[in-house]
Design a protein around this nucleic acid. Structure first.
Lengths: 135, 135
DNA sequence: TAGATTGTGTCACTGTTTCGATACAATGAC
DNA sequence: GTCATTGTATCGAAACAGTGACACAATCTA
């Protein structure tokens, strides 16, 4: 039973809220590789959404290489990582990092302060994640 | 003469391209506090845009507290920083940091690798900035 | 095979966003 | 005061995004 929270009227599209939360669940290990995600209709009913909205979220996650689908069977977390090359990964993350740096500088955060924040957020996100099981 | 580059058909709205680039110019000191920005019509003509598009970009920057406008006179870079409280700044940046961490984890970047990337991007952004003049 | 379950595809409605045309209002220079 | 310059406000057209209704197709289970 996935623990997801949807805010209907906060401006952020529902499908995007789903994408972000599921991305986080995967990143932090709460959703394990080859783990099963709820069928679109089930999740839609749980969250009182149109199934299409869940479909859209799942599709975005599939394009990002984070999940895969088997028709008639279900939807699962990918065990392989990312369909992107190293260079592409780097470009994607550099873009995000640039945005953080620029926003930070304009809000009075210098390099060290940003690094400290980044490390703290990393720890916080990891905090409630399940223990890493020895592979 | 501001150096800005606009891509007409790349999906990113023109006004947003303006906002981002000007934010970067301010963050890296290429636009100095109380420095003057081009009048909306002038910038619009330079970039072959509708003046309204520039207006929109300027308004967003004003809301963010980065510039201020004087009717009949012109538009200038703010010397004060941010209309946000410390807590608000932190929340804004934490949100961006979270996104970077999640994306990073899903692309195989651990904490140290992300920090290294962040530091490198910070240096790169600063590289071509004008020298800091002793205040 | 039969039927339930799962994802897929298509269409349409609605509101928002983006961009542009054009007129208005305040300020500065003279 | 006059006039050019600067930002402001309003309206509209076109494209896009978000959501929903509903029918289709593949797979699994019995």
């Amino acid at each position: 039973m996935l623990h997801l929270t949807i805010s209907q009227g906060d401006g952020v599209p529902i499908y995007l809220q789903l994408v972000r939360q599921i991305k986080t669940l995967i990143a932090t290990g709460r959703l394990k590789p080859d783990g099963e995600l709820p069928p679109v209709r089930v999740l839609a009913q749980q969250l009182v959404l149109n199934p299409n909205t869940v479909v859209r979220a799942y599709r975005e996650l599939e394009v990002a290489g984070l999940i895969y689908k088997k028709r008639g069977a279900g939807t699962y977390v990918s065990s392989e990582v990312t369909p992107y090359t190293d260079a592409e990964c780097r470009r994607i993350l550099a873009e995000r990092a640039d945005a953080l740096v620029v926003e930070g500088l304009n809000l009075g955060y210098d390099e060290d302060k940003l690094v400290a924040l980044l490390r703290e957020r990393h720890k916080t996100l990891r905090r409630d994640a399940p223990d890493e099981e020895g592979a």
